[in-house]
Design a protein around this nucleic acid. Structure first.
Length: 542
DNA sequence: TCAAATGGCGCC
DNA sequence: AAAGGGCGCCATTTGA
């Protein structure tokens, strides 16, 4: 047990916790728990009805700290940190056994692996690891904040995975029936898809399997359309009678395979959808999920997310977070001014795009993603003129990436360095003649990485902000009986709350966003507003 | 025959 | 000159 201040510094004694009674005492005293890996230890506590307010997750912290040293993918357990700190051989990380996996029979060693996955409980190992991490954090305020938010996110992730997102089976199954027809036998096409497939065959005049991109492309080529991909946005512009059926087929087939009856069987048990959330699972610091595609719930199915009786959903999203984050990290005066507006894109449009919001948005997204072709490319000049500092900021990040350097988020999360293979290609190719294929390949590699680092500074800083926002709101929600975080997706979260507390929670989400702005961008005038909506059903939120 | 790669598309 | 970021998941295709 170790208490840390909010700045990530130790103030209390170190002591092992013996047994549940002492654990409860320590929790009641408001101590911050120190442990190896939240996702391994905390689920059992949550299952026992114990809620931890604050923790320090050594593994997640180590991932951030090692990343800043340019190391990715190395073992990050307390034992590994201890080993590196003491100059002893670094053990492999414990094998992660998936909670959702079927028990494996007849697999020698599986039980041993599970035993190894038990969290490290040696207090001395953890003490040494913590001291080493604090030394490396070195009183860096931003980094301490990032690490505190990462650990808090880990708690929230376990709690959300346990609580689950309310999911009404009858609504979901009703939608499937209306879109696809009755549930087919295993391996068969739903009736609606079978109909569409027949229409597609008729329109072409020969059999085509719309599930096969190869087959579909060959079919369109055979009738005179020289396409090299069957993406919807290409198909939609072709003048052929099969087009409408193909597009509808693709849309419905996607629902069937991604969120159809099989998905429902596997993921939507007991009125809840319980994915496994992985904070920091993306290099930018965004969360990932394992199972169920939780971060890609299609809009068409959000009607199935309905609050329990007597409850409401507070759906809060940070409006246009990424351009606001760009304004904050670049300190571009004009973009900061524009970001004062509740609708940044409208203000942007009025500021230089003749009131054309769609163009303004396209240009801004293109600038952050590194797009330079097409419409967005043509609009880039306007942005460069109006917001030179902001454009310089992403341009610098791109150049650093092209040169093989790394970039960091506002709170200090580092992007991975390029691979050895990348360096070889780029170094060799850059010495060749401009027309040499090796040179072209090298330039391509460099540009690709430039786009990645260009986007990283914005996406990762936005993730910093979102983690602090989520952490702050989670803490505040402990004051609201019955309020539960049930979903988090990059810049949007959902709290299920008793009706009488909905307004309060909506307000808390706004305050937490303001607090996150002040913590992540101290002194910045850029606002990062959230707009909570109180609804019964997720589909009504937008 | 099976694992890895690919194509496509959902979300931000 | 040219340059579309990050994911997870499914069915199909490819390759050993």
């Amino acid at each position: 047990m170790q208490e840390l201040t909010d700045a990530g510094l130790p103030v209390g004694p170190t002591a092992a916790v013996d047994g549940p009674a002492e654990l409860l005492d320590q929790l009641a005293a408001g101590h911050r728990l120190l442990w190896d890996t939240t996702s391994l230890t905390y689920p059992a506590l949550v299952g026992a009805g114990i809620r931890v307010e604050r923790c320090h997750d050594i593994t997640l912290t180590e991932r951030i700290l090692l990343g800043r040293q340019g190391v990715f993918g190395a073992p990050c357990s307390a034992r590994a940190v201890h080993a590196r700190a003491t100059g002893t051989p670094v053990p492999d990380d414990p094998v992660r056994t998936e909670a959702s996996a079927e028990p494996t029979l007849f697999e020698p060693g599986a039980a041993d692996e599970r035993a190894e996955a038990a969290p490290v409980d040696s207090i001395e190992v953890m003490r040494v690891a913590l001291v080493d991490q604090l030394r490396r954090i070195d009183h860096d305020r931003a980094l301490g904040l990032l690490i505190a938010a990462e650990s808090a996110s880990a708690l929230a992730a376990v709690e959300m995975g346990s609580t689950g997102l309310p999911w009404r089976a009858e609504v979901h199954l009703g939608l499937l029936d209306s879109m696809l027809g009755p549930r087919p036998r295993a391996g068969e096409r739903p009736t609606r898809l079978a109909q569409l497939a027949a229409e597609i065959n008729d329109a072409f005049g020969f059999p085509v399997n719309p599930d096969s991109a190869v087959d579909l492309r060959a079919a369109f080529r055979r009738v005179g359309f020289d396409i090299d991909t069957t993406r919807s946005w290409v198909i939609k512009d072709l003048a052929h009678p099969a087009v409408a059926s193909v597009l509808t087929y693709k849309e419905l087939a996607r629902v069937h395979t991604a969120n159809g009856w099989n998905w429902h069987d596997e993921w939507a048990r007991d009125g809840r959808f319980r994915p496994e959330y992985l904070p920091g699972g993306v290099v930018s610091g965004r969360w990932a999920t394992r199972g169920g595609g939780a971060l890609q719930i299609p809009r068409a199915l959000r009607a199935a997310v309905v609050a329990d009786p007597g409850h409401r959903l507070v759906v809060a999203d940070a409006a246009q977070l990424e351009p606001r984050v760009l304004a904050a990290i670049s300190k571009d005066p004009a973009l900061q001014a524009v970001s004062a507006d509740a609708d940044l894109y409208t203000a942007l449009a009025d500021d230089g795009f003749g009131g054309d919001r769609a163009h303004a948005k396209l240009a801004m997204l293109g600038a952050m993603y590194g797009q330079t072709s097409g419409e967005a490319g043509r609009l880039l000049d306007t942005l460069r003129r109006r917001y030179p500092a902001a454009m310089q900021c992403v341009q610098d990040a791109a150049h650093r990436g092209e040169r093989g350097e790394v970039v960091r988020s506002v709170l200090g999360r580092a992007c991975p360095p390029p691979s050895d293979g990348w360096r070889e290609v780029v170094e060799w190719g850059s010495r060749q003649d401009a027309t040499d294929p090796e040179r072209k390949r090298a330039d391509q590699f460099a540009r690709d990485r430039g786009r990645f680092t260009r986007n990283f500074v914005v996406q990762a800083s936005a993730a910093d902000w979102a983690a602090v926002w989520l952490s702050g709101l989670r803490r505040d929600l402990t004051q609201v009986p019955g309020a539960e975080l049930v979903f988090f997706q990059h810049d949007e979260l959902i709290v299920q709350v008793p009706i009488e507390s909905a307004e309060l929670v909506a307000d808390l989400s706004i305050r937490a966003a303001r607090a996150a702005r002040d913590l992540v961008f101290p002194g910045s005038v850029v606002s990062t507003p959230v707009r909570p909506v109180i609804v019964d059903c997720y589909a009504d939120a937008k």
